[in-house]
Simulated scan of single mutants.
Amino acid sequence: MDRQDETLQGNEKIEVAIQALQKEATQELLAHTLTVIRRRMKDSGQVIVAVEPSIGTTQMNLKMIQTSDGANWWYAFTSFNEEMKGADSVKSTFLVDIDKLFDAALTVPEIKGVILNPWNRTLMLDKGLIRIIKPE
C-alpha cells in the first residue's frame, strides 16, 4: 500500500494527465493537464516540496533545481512514490498547498517556476502556465 496523505489523494489524476501529455504533447492535453491541476488546487490539494535549512536563520528554503539554461526552479512531488524515484533521496520535505506554492513562485523573481515530479512524470510550470492555472 502506498502511504498516502489525505491531502495528496487526487494527485494521481495529475500524474495520469502528465503521463498522457508526455506521450502526446498537444495544446489540448496541456490545457487538460492545467485544468486537472487547477481542480486539485481548488480542492485544497497539496504537493510535497523539498526544503533545506536557510544559513544563519531558523527558516527553511524551498530547494531549487537549475536547468541547463541556467534558470532556477522550485520542485514539488504529487506523491511519495514520485519523490522516491529521485537519484538523490530528498532529505527534508513538507506538504504545501498547491495554491500557496504557486502564489509564492509568482512573487519570487529569481524563480522561473515549479517543476512537478522532476524525476519521472515531469511537468515544468513556468510563471506563464502558473498564471493560466491561477489567474490573479
Rank of each mutant, 00 (worst) to 15 (best):
M1W: 08
M1C: 03
M1D: 02
R3P: 07
R3D: 07
E6P: 07
E6C: 03
T7C: 13
Q9N: 11
Q9M: 12
G10D: 10
G10I: 03
E12T: 13
I14E: 06
I14R: 09
V16R: 15
Q19I: 04
A20R: 13
L21W: 14
Q22W: 07
K23G: 12
K23A: 06
E24I: 05
L29I: 09
L30P: 09
H32R: 11
L34P: 06
I37E: 04
R38D: 05
R38F: 08
R39K: 12
K42S: 13
D43Y: 04
S44V: 04
S44C: 05
G45W: 02
V49Y: 07
V49R: 10
E52R: 10
P53Y: 02
P53S: 09
S54R: 15
I55P: 14
I55A: 13
I55Y: 13
Q59L: 10
M60H: 02
M60N: 11
N61F: 02
N61A: 02
K63T: 09
I65F: 03
Q66G: 00
T67E: 00
T67I: 00
D69Y: 01
D69A: 07
D69C: 01
D69Q: 03
A71T: 09
A71C: 08
N72I: 00
N72W: 05
N72L: 12
W73R: 02
W74C: 01
W74I: 06
Y75K: 01
Y75E: 00
Y75S: 10
Y75R: 06
A76L: 04
A76P: 04
F77D: 03
F77Y: 15
T78W: 03
S79F: 02
S79N: 11
F80Y: 07
N81V: 06
E82Q: 10
G86D: 05
G86S: 08
A87C: 04
D88K: 10
D88V: 06
D88F: 11
S89I: 13
K91F: 06
S92E: 09
S92N: 14
L95G: 06
I98R: 00
I98H: 01
K100C: 02
L101Y: 00
F102S: 01
D103N: 07
A105W: 00
L106S: 06
T107I: 05
V108G: 04
V108K: 07
P109F: 01
E110V: 08
E110W: 01
I111M: 07
K112G: 08
G113Q: 00
G113R: 05
V114E: 07
I115M: 10
L116N: 09
W119Y: 15
W119T: 08
W119K: 05
N120H: 14
N120L: 05
N120I: 08
R121H: 15
T122K: 10
L123T: 04
L123A: 06
M124G: 06
L125V: 02
D126E: 14
K127D: 04
I130L: 10
R131F: 00
I132T: 14
I132K: 15
P135R: 08
P135K: 11
